[in-house]
Design a protein around this nucleic acid. Structure first.
Lengths: 140, 140
DNA sequence: CCGAATCCAGAAGGATACTG
DNA sequence: CAGTATCCTTCTGGATTCGG
């Protein structure tokens, strides 16, 4: 019997090979992790500050973030050794978050990306308007 | 009556202010866009190549991507003026994708981020193991 | 003040089949 | 070869509530 579904099979095999590959090669995992919206914002916020920031401070510095996402993202960043968490047991508990040296290292790149976004934003906007105007007038 | 729900209200207001802010300041939109997993991988793939790449070529170069995500992401990148799409109407249709100058510009940053991930991956892994081992032994 | 836990709507994304 | 369209599962992430 000739293999009639080779294309499908190959694709499926590629996917499973990819899944297995991820376990051995965590680079993609790490890339996916730092390619997260909240990770970018938190690391950028802590990087711009240059020093420690409290939980409530982060909430104010990143408008629109929910406690859930903030806590969740901070935990993963702490686990990955990118931020340090310091608890001061005062009457109202005080928790400070700060980038580790490794985290500051990443913050530089994040800042560069953010600067790129700010610099070339108008180019992208222009391209988007151009593209949309062409697509919107098929029969003038 | 004293305002007992100020914290909740402030948070809610912050969210709506954020939503309104996004319309006037698309920088965050753009940052979120380029902080996408598939965007990173596609831009990196095209950047490493240095030249045009066909649809099927991209499928092979990015294992695990579905046609849906590949097409969808390419469309958005084209709309944003980061990649160009060239159709050659031969017997089997041939489509080439290539980074625009703006796209190449971004690819440099993406490559830097990818390199960072590859360089500091072991540090992150070590921190992760350290963190997990501490959390896994509360009662020895 | 900092966070954990639960609920749930909606978006993301994969599998599959079909077109030109 | 290069998509498009559809279904369906998974996961994201916001709202809310409770605890230390």
């Amino acid at each position: 019997m000739a293999p009639t579904t080779t294309a499908i099979q190959r694709r499926s095999e590629a996917r499973h090979a990819y899944d297995a590959f991820l376990k051995e090669c965590p680079t993609n995992q790490l890339l996916a992790r730092i390619s997260d919206k909240w990770v970018s914002l938190i690391v950028a916020a802590l990087g711009e500050r240059g020093g420690p920031l409290r939980y409530s401070g982060l909430t104010r510095k990143i408008p629109g973030v929910s406690q859930k996402m903030l806590t969740q993202t901070l935990r993963s960043l702490e686990r990955d050794g990118l931020v340090s968490r310091t608890v001061t047991a005062s009457v109202p508990v005080r928790v400070d978050y700060e980038l580790t040296p490794l985290g500051y290292n990443l913050a530089c790149l994040m800042t560069a990306v953010k600067d790129w976004a700010e610099t070339h934003m108008d180019d992208v906007l222009a391209a988007r308007a151009e593209h949309d105007s062409k697509a919107a007038v098929p029969t003038p």
